[in-house]
């Protein structure tokens, strides 16, 4: 077990280093500007005095290293500074939206993971059947579509024609849980479609990979039913790659949530980030991107660690 622990600690350390490097990039990206962010935002013909005042307000008169250290310290204590656009503390803007985004992501995970695993197992079970081919074509096309296309198709079908679900997901804090679920139905469905294909195909591939191995052939020769072979013999050994791909897709949710929130006017972190990019509210963008990047890194780290603790070849490296 000692080796696994070292491996995991190594991965965690690597994750921490990545996080620090990413925070450096996000923070110091501003330094790449030919002038600085003050002149860039205020425009070329701004009064020098205004630029100077703005610079002071942002703390741009201090050297970058000091600013970076201050920023990291403040960020760790939950203080992201103030927004350019409206001067409000960024942590106020983020708090409620982060909750909403997490709610949406969890809801999507709760729908998409079981659904794609079941679909994948079934596709492996009834390989080359009509069901298998149909779902293959369906997933191949769905990954070629931009998310907003899927979202609008769902809006037209389920929102307009059938009228089952609302097309705007303007949730608020005091809504009851069931109403939130109802409002989030279409965004969650859109994101489910975005990650479904990959998870389902990997589940199918992981199982089919195993079906070629000798012990499965043995089970076959014993005369076991195919459904029993797949679920009892193949599936337990396929968990590792499946868990890995699930974690990777949860990381991908971080990205698709941005687009989906904009389509459905969902008050989440992605929406806030896009709005801030449009008005070039750099501190808010930095805070949001740091949260997104940290989640993404954490998810990928989880995927890494899952594949370490479930893979015997990694447990006992040569």
């Amino acid at each position: 077990m000692g080796k696994v622990l070292t491996l995991i600690v190594q991965r965690l350390g690597l994750g921490l280093i990545t996080l620090i490097a990413v925070s450096l990039i996000i923070f110091l990206g501003v330094e790449l500007l030919p002038g600085d962010i003050a002149t860039e935002i205020l425009g070329k013909d701004a009064q020098p005095a205004t630029v100077e005042a703005f610079r002071k307000e942002l703390g741009l008169d201090k050297p970058p290293v000091t600013r970076y250290i201050q920023w990291v310290g403040a960020t760790l204590s939950g203080d992201f500074g103030n927004s350019f656009a409206n001067g409000r503390p960024i942590s106020d803007l983020i708090g409620f939206r982060l909750q909403n985004t997490l709610f949406l992501a969890l809801m999507t995970a709760a729908i998409s993971v079981p659904l794609s695993l079941i679909a994948g197992v079934l596709a492996a079970l009834y390989r080359n059947s009509f069901y298998d081919r149909a779902i293959n074509i369906f997933t191949l096309t769905s990954i070629s579509f931009p998310e907003f296309f899927i979202a609008y198709i769902l809006i037209i079908v389920f929102g307009q024609q059938l009228g089952w679900f609302p097309t705007l997901s303007n949730v608020s804090a005091e809504m009851p849980f069931s109403q939130k679920l109802y409002l989030c139905a279409l965004p969650a469905l859109t994101m489910t479609l975005a990650v479904f294909a990959h998870m389902m195909r990997m589940t199918r591939a992981a199982i089919l990979n195993l079906l070629a191995s000798p012990y499965i052939e043995m089970a076959n020769l014993k005369g076991l039913e195919r459904s029993r072979i797949v679920t009892k013999h193949a599936l337990p050994n396929a968990w590792a790659p499946i868990a890995n791909v699930v974690a990777l897709n949860m990381a991908y949710l971080v990205v698709s949530v941005v687009v989906v929130e904009v389509v459905f006017v969902f008050p989440g972190l992605g929406q806030l980030m896009v709005d801030s990019v449009i008005v070039r509210d750099v501190p808010v963008v930095q805070a949001c991107s740091m949260i997104f990047a940290a989640t993404y890194i954490l998810m990928n780290l989880t995927a890494d660690i899952i594949s370490i603790v479930t893979n015997p070849r990694l447990l006992h490296p040569r």
Binding site: T18, I25, I26, L32, E40, V254, M273, V277, F292
Partner: peptide, 21 residues
């Protein structure tokens, strides 16, 4: 490249666009 790939492309692109216009 490892560090660059640790940030989701869309998020990274949004940050850079916010900075550079």
């Amino acid at each position: 490249v490892d560090v660059f790939m640790a940030i989701p492309v869309l998020i990274f692109a949004l940050v850079l666009i916010a900075i550079f216009g």
